[in-house]
């Protein structure tokens, strides 16, 4: 992989230059939290951010978007007006989340709505320092080798920039003059020192290795009933989870004529109607069954399906659930801890 250097004071100039390719987004502060916001004004960029409220999936499968417009029975896919976007500041764990979504959406039966957005979204990674809710080291998602176009590694006064794709290379060439190509031995040393230091910063450890077996053994555990009693079924966990892909569909028509659109919105298996079929049978009536499904799917089913858990250790569930149901507490409870 090609590696370059970029002086920190050149970052804003560089990001500014990328507007020739597409809209530039990055972490900005919203209240006490962060979001990926459009960077019309680069002074809003906050590179010290922790996790954003919504993960980068919001660009690839927005919470609400049209899949088709229709006129009588003629359907037209809405794939044309998707803008080029550059998302800067995506942490390694989240890029792992994208790799999971890529497998999910692009392998069996490719999803064109995801695929087209993915193709038009440049992912510019950024190294991070964990807080007490991050456990990416436990999930082995704290470094990433693919899934990004460029990845910026923060080393005091400069970034090491990893070029991860042909598009990434094109983006570098927009302002090649800002980059240095000579990686020296001291850079390597610097990088290794940073890596060792950062690895030592993980305070939270959530061991997921035996989870498939533990989930199986806990199938009838009262833990699920306790969690079900506590869960508000607000669905916030699914909204913020970088690997939750579920959605709902609804057709919107105009009152006066037979034209409309087929809209796709985020859904959550935590909601009561999720497994309800026409005729009234609900396959997961009890909240405890739904909580169990959520965690079984993340921590067991994905391993069966894709070889690894669908948890990237980003800590969003820990940061979001008002009643403290999250990967950390659930895993602990299932392992018999309190």
């Amino acid at each position: 992989m090609k590696v370059l250097k970029l002086k920190k004071h050149n970052l804003n100039d560089y990001l500014d230059s990328l507007r020739v390719w597409g809209e530039v987004y990055g972490p900005v502060k919203q209240g006490e939290k962060y979001i990926y916001g459009q960077l019309d004004d680069l002074s809003k960029l906050d590179t010290k951010m922790l996790r954003t409220i919504l993960p980068v999936k919001k660009f690839l499968m927005p919470p609400k978007f049209n899949t088709f417009t229709f006129d009588e029975n003629k359907y037209k896919a809405e794939l044309e007006n998707i803008p080029n976007r550059i998302v800067f500041g995506v942490h390694p764990c989240e890029i792992h989340g994208l790799l999971i979504l890529d497998k999910f959406f692009l392998e069996r039966f490719p999803d064109p709505f995801y695929g087209e957005r993915r193709r038009k979204t440049a992912i510019l990674g950024l190294s991070c320092v964990p807080d007490d809710k991050c456990f990416a080291k436990s999930t082995n998602t704290h470094y990433v080798e693919s899934g990004f176009d460029l990845a910026f590694n923060d080393l005091d006064n400069y970034y090491l920039v990893w070029v991860g794709s042909s598009l990434g290379d094109d983006l570098v060439r927009i302002r090649l003059d800002l980059f240095e190509e000579d990686i020296k031995e001291k850079d390597l040393k610097h990088y290794m020192e940073w890596r060792n230091w950062r690895d030592s910063q993980y305070k939270l450890n959530v061991n997921l290795t035996a989870m498939p077996d533990i989930m199986e053994l806990n199938y009838s555990s009262p833990v699920w009933d306790e969690l079900g009693d506590k869960c508000l079924s607000c669905g916030a966990c699914s909204m913020v989870c970088p690997t939750c892909p579920c959605y709902n569909m609804s057709d919107q028509i105009r009152p006066s004529q037979f034209t409309g659109k087929r809209e796709r919105t985020w859904d959550s298996c935590m909601f009561k109607q999720f497994a309800l079929v026409a005729g009234g049978h609900n396959f997961r009536e009890a909240r405890s069954q739904r909580v169990r499904l959520w965690y079984t799917h993340k921590l067991k089913a994905f391993i069966t399906e894709f070889g690894k858990a669908a948890c990237i250790g980003c800590g969003r569930c820990i940061d979001t659930c008002p009643v403290d149901i999250n990967v950390k507490t659930v895993v602990k409870a299932l392992k018999g801890g309190k």
Binding site: Q30, G31, E32, K33, I35, T52, I53, L54, P63, K64, L232, S233, C234, G235, A236, M239, V240, S250, Q252, I253, R254, P255, G260, W266, S268, F271, Q273, T320, P322
Partner: peptide, 27 residues
């Protein structure tokens, strides 16, 4: 529009938190 076409109303009763998160509000 649904009612005029003879379809039943469709008022999802998912909680406010769903849309609140879409707007990326702090809880």
């Amino acid at each position: 529009a649904r009612l005029l076409r003879g379809l039943p109303a469709d008022v999802p009763k998912t909680p406010v938190c769903l849309e609140c998160k879409w707007h990326e509000n702090e809880c």
